[in-house]
Design a protein around this nucleic acid. Sequence first.
DNA 1: TCGTTATCTGGAAACTCTTTCCGGAACTAT
DNA 2: ATAGTTCCGGAAAGAGTTTCCAGATAACGA
Lengths: 201, 201
Amino acid sequence: MSDNTADFGVRDRAPRRLRTDARRNIESLLEAAKTVFSTAGVDAPAKEITDLAGVGVGTLYRHFPQRSDLIKAVIEREIDACADAAPALAAAHEPGVALAKWLDRFTAFVATKRGFAAALHSGDPAFDGLPGYLMQKLGPALESLLDAATASGEVRARVGAQDLLYAVAKLCAPMPDEEPDYGRRMVALLVDGLRSGESPH
Amino acid sequence: MSDNTADFGVRDRAPRRLRTDARRNIESLLEAAKTVFSTAGVDAPAKEITDLAGVGVGTLYRHFPQRSDLIKAVIEREIDACADAAPALAAAHEPGVALAKWLDRFTAFVATKRGFAAALHSGDPAFDGLPGYLMQKLGPALESLLDAATASGEVRARVGAQDLLYAVAKLCAPMPDEEPDYGRRMVALLVDGLRSGESPH
DNA sequence: TCGTTATCTGGAAACTCTTTCCGGAACTAT
DNA sequence: ATAGTTCCGGAAAGAGTTTCCAGATAACGA
């Protein structure tokens, strides 16, 4: 806790190259965790994950000192994947279509990964950085898509990228037995407001 | 699960009058739990609650066989309080004002009680009944307020009470470090849509 | 290639909560 | 008051997480 080795997360920052077996194990753990989380939920016992990854518990806790660190890492990784999808979509479609498709992608992520909503609302300070991370990674992505769509006249901007991002994230968070398209419907309502609304009053 | 004794929760239905000390203890536990939950979060150790309530752990588990049962009971109790507030507001204000005030009340409940969002998104099947309970209790309350406001011409209904209820509940669920009025702002956006929107297309 | 050194690994043990259990206390009805 | 239930309290069992460290393994210089 002094000066040189205060690194918590595993991603970014390379104060010192990791040993190759360590890197390989981290990879296995993240992959296994992703699988187990989506199968048995984020509360699945750690043992299940380490077994699937083929490592001991000690290895898990060496790289992810707290259970929440593992969850955080998995989610951040999925956020990254979502961000990475934006440029490809922008390149392959009309601005309006690209925006819609990306929102779909994002919606699917939020709706599918129950762990994301759970982590966000858990109240555990360990996850406090997550919205910031999401904003930082996805904000620019959405903004550029939004700008392009606005420029091409297909959308009239009334809310910022951040507000929209959060609103979609919240509206699409899964709730027990709600109609499967509820989230999408509500997002459509918002986007309708975006694209055709005269400002009220 | 057959015919006569399949009661899980503690509230409503009286197959047999509870002993007075039992009822008193249940009351203490619910009160203590409410306090502790809002102080230390819903993950606070059970010991803390039983100590505050002045009972042993055994007593807690006699009345709330699972930890989630206690959380559920506390939340249901707060939902009840919210529902009970509607008639008074309707009696004391103009329809439009009553609606706004009640939405404020509901918003505050969702925004303040982090445990509610946490339970809802936890993925634990124990909480599956909660949205239904919320709908059942708050749906009629909101609907009557909404009807009154519509009748008096202050609001043009475009979504049902259920959709609105869920949307508000989701938008106002607290997220780490978001502007304090974000939820209220987004709800306003929705309500603006409600009150002045020409239906798009 | 080999020795040296820092880093990583596995699993046993310590901990922290939750949940079960049951002897004895407390309430209720008669 | 007494019998008959129903409850209470807290010890102990379970379930999961986190710590710890002796031994294994990679990295690197000679």
